[in-house]
Design a protein around this nucleic acid. Structure first.
Length: 576
DNA sequence: TTAGGGTTAG
């Protein structure tokens, strides 16, 4: 038996497998080893042996549970994981004494659901799991939790987790923490991480990965640092993935130098290590160093992938390295990486921002990939910056055709008209907004004060100190007006104010967060803010003035990059 | 014989 197992492990090609299969058949041993052979083929690294497994399976008169398991497991790994579910369905519909789903079958089928994001199917298997009596299987429950989280039902995941009660172990916690972090509920992820600690669980590398990722998203510097200290004390920094997450965390919390220190110390840098660091430099506007690193990775024998190119393009974008970025983009295909919609989006942004609108549009027209909504929105943004009405109208029509119904698109078009004082057209756009049910992505900002993350929405009055915050903003306004500040009303629709007070310029979430920082963070410490959208022009102008008048360093991370305001100017040099 | 949790992205 052991001999056959070791032979199987050493089969790396179809001819090896066929030889072994023939040998087992002639010696009459095949029925005893069939499932193992199927499993080996079905889960072969490149999946090149899966068709052979499927062929053998089809010619098996009455396949056993283990035979099914091997096939379902293999199919779940393919680009079309729903085929695993078809197979599972076939099996569970006609159960016999030798062929009935066991806990492993369910586990593999659930994996397929996770990869296919098939929530209803997962729920169905969940009820079968209970019916089959596997409700107490901790491994299977963790798989279930994980599927719910990955397929987008985080409440379902939490429910499974709570029901597991005493059977939870570190993997169950990890699945939930990672699920929450990846599902854009980073505060909850951090809460669970802390709860795990208070319940005496010892975090391992997977736990800290999820927690670090949550800190990155929240800009939770203090919590992130605590986790990094823990990582070092436990020797978890030998794990490259943990280091990558820490690099990302420090960079996204504003400490790019600290991120670089960790990067330098990672002995076996992976592709992701390089990509994360290049993206970190890009976010901080250090295009030169990002490009140097991009060149350097090649010399270290690491071949740039599509994410590396995206990071490098992004770096050129934020640093205004237009020629360099365009050259890089044009060199991609020749180096074996074909640009995807994100690369096109990035280069359109690069050209558009620099004012090369026609060239940007030409790229969109001729690109072999279907442009998505984000790409058109990027172009519309450039039209607004350079006041190109004709192109803005064309692009807006495109967006409407694509079913985009976002408030931002209408506002941009309206601003193009407003800049040219075409008030009739402004009114027309506003009318169109009223007639449609336009969707607004709510803007919010985070700021961490003494280890506590505070969240503000636009026009928010739910914070315990909101009255003080608003008073502070009034004071700010008074002081900056003395410096000649005039609100950039260009960024809002003119008299939408009546019905839409909360969106008024002066109470944008980043302003609230900065004002809160002014009243609650000691005088010489910098104020750090994280915003989910791009910072608006008015906020940018106001925060520059605050940094001068109040002699404060203010660091704002917006959706795309960092803005470091100091003595009246910003690290982005007003190019963003 | 084979199970569960994992970092980067306009």
């Amino acid at each position: 038996m052991a001999f056959v197992d070791s032979l199987l492990q050493n089969c790396h090609s179809l001819s090896h497998i066929k030889q072994l299969h023939a040998h087992l058949t002639t010696t009459g041993l095949f029925p005893f080893h069939r499932s193992k052979l199927l499993d080996r083929c079905a889960t072969s690294p490149s999946l090149s042996l899966l068709p052979y497994a499927a062929f053998v399976f089809r010619h098996t008169p009455s396949p056993s549970t283990n035979d099914y398991n091997a096939i379902i497991r293999g199919l779940a790994l393919t680009p079309t994981p729903t085929r695993a579910l078809t197979c599972y369905l076939h099996m569970s519909r006609a159960p016999t004494t030798t062929t009935r789903p066991d806990a492993l079958t369910c586990s593999f089928a659930l994996k397929a659901c996770a990869r296919a994001l098939a929530l209803p199917e997962a729920a169905q298997i969940h009820s079968q799991v209970t019916r089959f009596g596997f409700g107490l299987d901790a491994l299977l429950q963790t798989t279930l939790l994980d599927v719910y989280a990955k397929a987008g039902d985080l409440d379902g995941a939490r429910k499974v987790f709570e029901e597991m009660a005493s059977r939870r172990d570190i993997a169950s916690w990890n699945a939930l923490i990672a699920g929450l972090a990846q599902g854009s509920r980073p505060s909850e992820a951090l809460e669970m991480f802390k709860r795990a600690g208070s319940e005496g669980l010892r975090a391992n590398e997977v736990t800290v990965l999820g927690a670090l990722s949550a800190c990155s998203q929240l800009g939770a510097t203090r919590e992130g640092e605590k986790i990094w200290e823990y990582v070092r004390s436990e020797g978890l920094d030998l794990n490259v993935q943990v280091c990558n997450a820490a690099i990302d965390m420090y960079a996204k919390c504003g400490f790019v130098d600290k991120a670089y220190q960790i990067f330098e110390r990672v002995c076996r840098k992976s592709l992701v290590t390089w990509n994360t660091m290049i993206m970190a430099l890009a976010m901080h506007g250090d295009g030169r160093r990002a490009m140097e690193l991009f060149e350097e990775m090649g010399r270290f024998g690491v071949c740039p992938d599509s994410v590396s190119y995206l990071a490098a393009l992004c770096a050129c974008n934020h640093a205004g390295l237009v020629d360099e970025g365009f050259r890089l983009f044009n060199s991609m295909a020749g180096r074996g990486v074909s640009p995807n919609v994100k690369h096109y989006g990035s280069v359109v942004d690069l050209l558009g921002r620099a004012g090369w609108l026609e060239d940007a549009f030409e790229i969109v027209r001729s690109m072999p990939v279907v442009p998505d909504v984000v790409l058109w929105q990027t172009l519309l943004g450039a039209c607004k910056t350079y006041g190109n009405v004709d192109m803005a109208e064309q692009v807006s029509r495109k967006l409407v055709e694509m079913g985009s119904n976002s408030c931002g698109d209408f506002v941009l078009l309206s601003n193009v008209y407003a800049a040219l004082e075409r008030w009739d057209d402004v009114g027309r756009v506003r009318e169109a907004m009223k007639n449609r049910d336009v969707k607004k992505v709510p803007g919010f900002s985070y700021t961490e004060v003494e280890g506590v993350v505070h969240k503000f929405l636009n026009g928010d009055q739910s914070h315990p100190s909101w009255r003080e915050i608003y008073r502070k903003l009034e004071e700010v306004r008074f002081r900056i007006e003395a410096y000649g500040y005039v609100p950039e009303t260009n960024y809002v629709l003119h008299d939408i104010g009546q019905e839409d007070k909360e969106n008024a310029l002066c109470y944008h979430s980043e302003k609230l967060a900065v004002a809160f920082g002014l009243i609650s963070i000691s005088e010489h410490a910098p104020i750090q803010v994280i915003k989910n959208l791009r910072i608006c022009g008015d906020c940018h102008a106001v925060i520059k003035l605050i940094s001068k008048i109040y002699e404060r360093e203010i660091i704002v991370r917006d959706r795309a990059r960092f803005h470091r305001f100091k003595q009246g100017s910003c690290s982005c040099r007003d190019y963003w």
